[in-house]
Design a protein around this nucleic acid. Structure first.
Lengths: 131, 131
DNA sequence: TTAAAGCTTCCAGTCACTGGAAGGTCAAGA
DNA sequence: TCTTGACCTTCCAGTGACTGGAAGCTTTAA
C-alpha cells in the first residue's frame, strides 16, 4: 500500500512515517515508480509505534519495545521493566508540575489583578518578595 | 561585570546567557577587549529570566513578563492573566500525565513480568488486546 | 488533454539550549 | 619575561521528534 493509505490506517502523519523510515524504524519496499510500498507487517509496526508514542515512550524506547515485540522469546519481565521505569518518570513529572502549580497559584492568589501597577507576581520574579 | 560573574550571580549557564543575548533578552555593553560587560540592570534581567523560566514560562512569555516588569504603569491584571493561563496549561499537563499513568499502570499490573514471553503490554501496543 | 491529488527528495525551522573547535585576553607564578 | 591556565570570544553543529515548504515526478479522473 502507498504511504497515504498507511498514514490513514496507522493514524500517523505522512511526514512522520517518512521520518520513521529515515531513522530506521520501518523499512518499506519500493514500487517501480519509486513510491514506498508498505506491507501488512510494516503497517503493524506503524500502529505499534503510534500507540507506544502516544503512551509517552520516546523514540528510542519505542525502538526497544519494537525489538521486544518482534522477539517471540523475550521475557515479559523486560517489557514490564521498561513500562515501570516509564511510570516512575511520569510520576516525577506529575509531582514537579504539582509543585509548580502550587507556586503559581500562590502568586496568582496574592495578586489582586486590577488596573493598578502593584503586582506581587512581578515582585517575586524580580526577587523582591519575602521568601 | 564579566559573563562568568553574571552567570554565578544569576544561576544561569554562560552559554544560556549568550543565547539570551542572541535572541535579544539582554543587551550587555562591551568592554574594550570585546568582553561582555553586564550592569546591575542586566543582572536583574537575568535573575528575572532565571526565575520565570524555572516557573515554566516559555521564552516568549518571559519576554512579555520582562516588558511588563519594566513598564511601571502596567496593570497587575495583565500579569495575573498570563500566570493564570500558565496554571491552566500546567493543569492540562497534569491530567494528561495522570491518565497516561493510569493506562501504563493497568498494563504493568496485567503483566506477570517473569521469563515467559507472554506479555499483555506488548499485546496492547500491537493492538491485539480486548479494549 | 489537463487538472488535481498524491508521491518523491531535500532543505530549513521549531524550542531552548548545549557541546566543541579555534583562537584572543588576562592574571599569577617561576 | 615567559608560560600556564582560566576566562573570554565567535561560529558551527546537534539535540528530539517532527513539521513546512519548494521543486519536480506519477497517477487518476473528468
Amino acid at each position: 500500500m502507498n504511504i497515504g493509505t498507511a498514514s490513514e490506517q496507522s493514524q500517523l502523519p505522512v511526514k512522520t512515517i517518512r521520518y520513521y523510515e529515515d531513522i530506521g524504524l520501518v523499512r518499506p519496499l519500493r514500487s517501480d515508480n519509486g513510491y514506498r510500498d508498505f506491507s501488512e507487517t510494516d503497517l503493524q509496526r506503524l500502529k505499534f509505534l503510534q500507540r507506544s508514542r502516544s503512551l509517552g515512550f520516546s523514540i528510542e524506547e519505542c525502538r526497544e519495545l519494537l525489538s521486544l515485540y518482534e522477539d517471540g522469546d523475550r521475557a515479559s519481565a523486560d517489557v514490564k521493566a521498561i513500562t515501570q521505569s516509564k511510570i516512575r518518570e511520569v510520576d516525577r513529572k506529575i509531582s514537579e508540575l504539582q509543585s509548580l502549580k502550587k507556586v503559581l497559584t500562590t502568586l496568582s492568589d496574592a495578586c489582586h489583578g486590577d488596573d493598578r501597577p502593584t503586582c506581587p507576581i512581578i515582585d517575586d520574579l524580580a526577587g523582591e518578595a519575602d521568601r
